[in-house]
Amino acid sequence: MTAALRELYQDVVFDHARTPRNRRRPARSSHQAQGHNPLCGDKVTVHLDVADGVIRDAAFEGEGCAIATASASLMTEALKGKPVEEAERLLEGFHHMVTDPQAAAHPELGKLEVLAGVREFPVRVKCATLAWHTFHAALHGGHAPVSTEDGQ
């Protein structure tokens, strides 16, 4: 196995891919959106329960590759309990981390940093960002499912 592969498929990634956290349809949700990566057919639905500017609960449904599943799992863990503004900064930081090859360390991302290795795999970046795009769509409404091929 090459170093880049090991960097991509870390133990934490495997753990979250095998046993995803928060993969469920929550009883209460104030926001939700569907995301779709037409290149591979992966689909994800993100549910949020937001009250008083704080994300009380975050969950997802869907099946995907190890990177997409682990990313959705890690994302929902990170979002829970975060004020919306902070969560949006997390989204920006995550996007920067997986797309900018020069990106410095992102200590504020905490556990999410295990996905930094994806930036060595440009074709897999969309796997890692699908859940985050969908999270953004859920927060900001819009009824059409988001696609990794829209814009950017």
């Binding site: 592969l5 991509l8 591979c40 992966d42 590759c65 190890a66 997409a68 795999f121 074709v123 897999r124």
Partner: peptide, 13 residues
Amino acid sequence: GVHPHDIGTIVDH
């Protein structure tokens, strides 16, 4: 237990 995308990345290496 292994998504086709993950297979593709691993065999590419």
